[in-house]
Design a protein around this nucleic acid. Structure first.
Length: 272
DNA sequence: AGCGGAACCTGTCGGC
DNA sequence: TGCCGACAGGTTCCGC
């Protein structure tokens, strides 16, 4: 489900309510969302902890606690957070409930149960975070970096963009939209992308992510923000999910192919 | 190194 | 109506 713009939107919304709130009780309704930590340790570690500002790294949410330790969450395909008033929430997909006092609560819901929650001393103890690539909205992400990184890879361009060890936080929707924006075929070899093309790609990454962030992310089927509102970027999608629909630029039908067991949508005329 | 396949789960949709 | 396969904003492990 969520990629960088969705996770960043959720982080911002959690930060409007969570900091300063203290966890009085943790209810685990589904053990399997806990990774590398037992239910007992999870509850013991978090009880009494006070939330600080939430952070994001790639698609991970980081909840730091003082004097040390982090709750680390990954939403995978269908995970969601919700902040509720009264504990009347009777969703069949409620997996973890954090009671915060005064009737307030933080809920973790996940239809498919692929999402994960973890408690660690430091986020880098998780390989997925330790090996995370550059943050595309940070100053570390530059044209020069992208040109060099692409030239040193033997991967196919779509796969390279999806790899979190290269650029952090991109996923199936935004890679499709970025490659369309840049006019580059998802089937290209990364190393064959010219510096001129890499600059287009760089601008595409920035432009698409910034616009998606401004729109609070994309709601296709069930992504919901913390307050249960939807994102609006789906109004701006040009290729993702548009199989056989006319390309907005050249009117030829959008193609769907398979790459790494995922659907890739693109215009074979505009993207070369 | 990088890719395909399978696995982790649940739900929905389209076709027969 | 019911069954069955395909598909879904993700990641990881295994084998070639």
């Amino acid at each position: 489900m969520p990629e960088l713009p969705e996770v960043e939107t959720i982080v911002r919304e959690l930060n409007r309510v969570l900091p300063g709130k203290t966890i009085e009780k943790v209810e685990v309704l589904r053990d399997t969302v806990l990774r590398g930590v037992t239910r007992e340790d999870f509850q013991l570690n978090l009880r009494g902890k006070t939330f600080q500002p939430v952070q994001r790294r790639g698609k991970y949410l980081l909840f730091p606690f003082l004097p040390d330790g982090y709750l680390v969450a990954h939403l995978r395909m269908s995970g969601k957070f919700a902040v509720g008033g009264e504990p009347a929430t009777a969703s069949a997909h409620l997996r973890i409930r954090f009671l915060l006092g005064e009737g307030k609560q933080l809920l973790f819901l996940d239809t498919r149960c692929l999402g994960t929650l973890n408690v660690v001393e430091h986020p880098d103890s998780l390989p997925g975070i330790r090996r995370m690539g550059v943050e595309p909205l940070s100053g570390d992400f530059t044209e020069a970096w992208l040109i060099k990184a692409l030239s040193g890879s033997s991967a196919v361009l779509k796969n390279w963009m999806m790899n979190q060890q290269n650029i952090a936080g991109l996923g199936n929707i935004y890679v499709a939209e970025i490659l369309f924006d840049a006019g580059l075929s998802p089937l290209r070899q990364a190393s064959a992308v010219t510096p001129r093309e890499a600059k287009r790609l760089y601008r595409g990454v920035k432009a698409i992510l910034e616009k998606a962030l401004e729109a609070n992310g994309t709601t296709i089927s069930d992504y919901k923000r913390v307050d249960d509102k939807s994102g609006e970027f789906q109004e701006f999608l040009r290729v993702y999910g548009k199989m056989n629909q006319p390309c907005v630029v050249c009117r030829s039908p959008i193609a769907r192919i398979r790459q790494q067991q995922r659907s890739t949508y693109y215009c074979s005329t505009c993207q070369t």
